[in-house]
């Protein structure tokens, strides 16, 4: 990202990008772990899609909280599966 070329630009329509601080944290953790190689973005999207599809069998994604809860769930699954418990 060439940051100096980007000007300050809040989301249009007054809608905040994140509804609550935890949503921003789970977003940032996923992006950072993808960048450090724990999963590829394709793997991330595929798993998130599966989780959304399962959720939609009983409910609907209607707000940011629903959406980022699914993001958090996806993140927890990757951590559980791929993070070496001995590490650290």
């Amino acid at each position: 990202m060439i940051v100096e070329l980007l000007s300050t630009q809040p989301q249009e329509g007054g809608e905040p990008v994140f509804d609550a601080p935890w949503q921003a944290r789970t977003f940032a953790m996923a992006v950072k772990l993808c960048e450090s190689g724990l999963f590829s973005w394709k793997e991330w999207s595929d798993r998130l899609s599966e989780n959304i599809a399962l959720f939609e069998q009983r409910s609907a994604v209607t707000n940011s909280e629903d959406y980022y809860s699914l993001w958090q769930q996806t993140l927890e699954q990757f951590i559980e599966e791929r993070l070496d418990p001995q590490d650290g």
């Binding site: 940051v3 300050t8 809040p10 994140f18 921003a24 992006v31 950072k32 724990l38």
Partner: peptide, 21 residues
């Protein structure tokens, strides 16, 4: 595995710097 400061910067980027403009 993550740096909280780098996370803050990332959030700031998408809250304030990258958008439909």
């Amino acid at each position: 595995l993550v740096d909280p400061k780098a996370m803050d910067e990332l959030v700031d980027t998408y809250e304030h710097r990258v958008g439909p403009r």
